[in-house]
């Protein structure tokens, strides 16, 4: 279980930084940078550049995604932005618009 959970009733306007896992179920605008795993859960809205080790997206994400390990775009996700990561998966059904760069 992640140490930090941004629940569905929460909205954050600004910057989130952390050295632990982060789950977002609410809405975040700004910037997210964690050194742990990041889950943009179903139902969430993120309007931010995100950075993490392993990033999974099941919600709506607008912004660039940079992961040091992997990015998983789940089937319910809607992502607009560039993805940069050594490993990337995009599930069938996901909507994605942007560039993909696996050459890190």
């Amino acid at each position: 279980m992640a140490n930090t959970v941004i629940g569905s009733g929460i909205s954050i306007d600004g910057e989130i930084r952390g050295e632990e896992a982060l789950v977002i179920q609410g809405s975040v605008k700004g910037k997210i940078a964690v050194t742990g795993d990041l889950l943009v859960d179903a139902g969430s809205t993120v309007d931010a550049d995100v950075e993490g080790k392993s990033i999974a997206v099941a919600g709506r994400l607008t912004g660039n995604v940079h992961a040091s390990d992997r990015v998983d775009v789940k089937s319910d996700a809607r992502v607009v932005g560039d993805i940069k990561s050594p490993r990337i998966s995009i599930a069938d059904g996901a909507s994605f618009k942007g560039n993909i760069d696996m050459d890190v």
């Binding site: 279980m1 992640a2 140490n3 930090t4 959970v5 941004i6 629940g7 569905s8 009733g9 929460i10 909205s11 954050i12 306007d13 600004g14 910057e15 989130i16 930084r17 952390g18 050295e19 632990e20 982060l22 179920q25 609410g26 700004g30 964690v34």
Partner: peptide, 28 residues
Amino acid sequence: ADKQTVIGSDTQITGEVRSEGGLEVRGR
């Protein structure tokens, strides 16, 4: 409860945080 919002001890937020429910902060 997993819907409970927690800002963990190794997490920092700069900006505005609004919540329609509760919020627990252990970080900055």
